[in-house]
Computed example of a mutant assay.
Amino acid sequence: MTDQGFTAGEIDTSRAHPARMYDYYLGGKDNYEVDRQAADRVIEVSPDVVLGARANRDFMHRAVRFVAQGGIRQIIDIGTGIPTSPNTHEIAQAVSPDVRVAYIDNDPIVATHAGAHLLGNGSTGFFLADMRDPEKILGHPTISRLIDFDQPVAIMLVSVLHFVSDAEDPRGIVATLREAICPGSRLVLSHGTADFHAATADEVQGAYGKAVAGLRLRGHDEVMALFEGFDLVEPGLVQAPLWRPDGPVPDDAESRRRGVYAAVGTKR
């Protein structure tokens, strides 16, 4: 089921959108010239952004598999982005076909792809909402249909909170979501950082200035603070390629090129 909640005239392709820029970093084609121009400016300043995007996507795959193998049977994927197979429900349902997934994004372009790529069965749903309004997300009918908050839930905030400014209170957003889920639930979170690219951080953040959402890269301690109320599973908060790798691990020099922290936490 898709709740688009917009008309064709409301789709704004005059400004770059981070979801479509991310699709471009991953080599996708579901983006517009304005997105490609903005993304190319970022790549020109910091070519490693492409490596970070791919490492982040690989982390998502491993983390979804991990939570599904751990018994989680319902997932709320906030900031879904342009669907790129395998998607969250494909990975989770390969572990257990009864996993239910609610997808949320604020980009109408994502909604246009949802029917073909995200809604293969009655166990998945998509609706338009903004992570800055977690109460709206939690109260949406699609959530009510798919999610039982008396049972453990995995909430996914993968590479999205760095588009939330300090004034928009990312810790408060996570806290609202945390209070809705029962102990044993999981938080899957990744976040861009300038800890390894300090020299280009201002230019990268500036390149997002004309996009529909600005960029706020955060340091390790700031990202750790988002996990308040959660116990991190091993290996803790690390660069994305180092979180439970299932293949060759980049050496230290190569790892430093991936400016993304990632972790999974369990609600106490």
Rank of each mutant, 00 (worst) to 15 (best):
residue 5 G to L: 11
residue 10 E to F: 04
residue 12 D to R: 11
residue 18 P to M: 03
residue 18 P to K: 07
residue 19 A to I: 03
residue 21 M to P: 09
residue 24 Y to I: 03
residue 26 L to T: 03
residue 28 G to T: 10
residue 28 G to F: 09
residue 29 K to E: 13
residue 39 A to F: 03
residue 40 D to N: 15
residue 40 D to M: 04
residue 42 V to E: 08
residue 50 V to S: 01
residue 52 G to H: 06
residue 52 G to V: 00
residue 60 M to F: 13
residue 61 H to L: 13
residue 63 A to C: 10
residue 64 V to D: 02
residue 64 V to A: 06
residue 72 I to P: 03
residue 75 I to L: 01
residue 76 I to Q: 00
residue 80 T to A: 12
residue 82 I to T: 10
residue 83 P to R: 09
residue 96 S to C: 11
residue 102 A to K: 01
residue 107 D to I: 06
residue 107 D to N: 14
residue 111 A to W: 08
residue 111 A to R: 07
residue 112 T to R: 15
residue 120 G to N: 12
residue 122 G to P: 02
residue 123 S to H: 14
residue 126 F to V: 03
residue 126 F to T: 03
residue 128 L to K: 14
residue 129 A to R: 10
residue 135 E to S: 13
residue 144 S to W: 09
residue 148 D to N: 14
residue 152 P to G: 09
residue 155 I to S: 00
residue 158 V to F: 00
residue 161 L to H: 05
residue 163 F to C: 09
residue 164 V to F: 08
residue 165 S to K: 07
residue 166 D to A: 14
residue 169 D to T: 04
residue 171 R to F: 00
residue 172 G to K: 03
residue 175 A to L: 01
residue 177 L to Q: 01
residue 178 R to P: 01
residue 183 P to G: 05
residue 184 G to N: 06
residue 184 G to I: 05
residue 185 S to N: 02
residue 191 H to Q: 15
residue 193 T to R: 11
residue 197 H to A: 15
residue 204 V to E: 11
residue 213 A to R: 12
residue 213 A to F: 14
residue 214 G to P: 00
residue 225 A to W: 02
residue 229 G to R: 04
residue 233 V to C: 12
residue 238 V to I: 09
residue 248 P to L: 10
residue 248 P to F: 02
residue 249 V to W: 10
residue 249 V to H: 08
residue 251 D to V: 10
residue 253 A to Q: 14
residue 254 E to N: 11
residue 257 R to S: 11
residue 263 A to S: 13
residue 264 V to F: 10
residue 267 K to C: 05
residue 268 R to Q: 13
